[in-house]
Amino acid sequence: MIRKTLIAAATLATLATGAFAQDKLRIGVEGAYPPFSFKQADGSLAGFDIDIAMALCAEMKRDCELVEQDWDGMIPALKAKKFDAIVASMSITEERKRQIDFSAKYYKTPARVVAKKDSGLEGTATGLAGKRLGVQRGSTHQCYAEKMFPEAEIVLYGTQEEVFSDLALGRIDAQLSDSLISQESFLSKPEGADFAFLAGDHTDVDCYGEGVGIAVRQGEEELRDAFSAAITAIRDNGTYKTVNDKYFPFDIYGGRPDGM
């Protein structure tokens, strides 16, 4: 009798959670990575990642809920089922694939080093030796910086905004991040006026992988493939272009802006 009740309860619980998961897809986002993900004055989330997430949800005909999460706890939170997918400009890399699964890429831009215009620095291993190089903790840039600039002093930050802030204040000599992020949220702003890209794109596959994808827990192939299919679908039906053009003057899916 007791066993039967238990089985019934377990079945009910499974059904309930299953139904719940089908009802609402929870998506982990960051909220501190403009223009991909940021907070508006009223506290609501906006940005390319946010709009893409919403467009994909609409395409998959799923109800979605955005869950904010600090960057360096993103993968642990996904694994702990605080949400079911990450749409937060997360690059697809081998090291991450050991922990989680990825959809096809939804964009890909190269990383570049930014420094003071008159610094005379070079974005190479010898050029940055002994210099303080800022990167966001737990990002692909941390991986790349430690691999390619072993002689530099790597300074780690919780958010990309803090990296820019300390670069502007001169606490670090240079910073490595996505070229687009640097362009849109630093170099084009007044505080970034005295700064510029150092020559050279950084696209190492070991650290940067194949582009930026949507992360899901391992073993959830169905959800992963649904995302990949939805990405293709919004690329084809023009939704992607609408979102893209809202934030960027060029297509960020594969290409990169001229002159950068």
Binding site: G73, E95, G158
Partner: peptide, 23 residues
Amino acid sequence: STITLQDILGVGRWLNGRYYLAY
């Protein structure tokens, strides 16, 4: 560790960040 110093927790978070670990 929140202002970039590599104290005990700073190193712990560096390790987590470098290898995408949780614990």
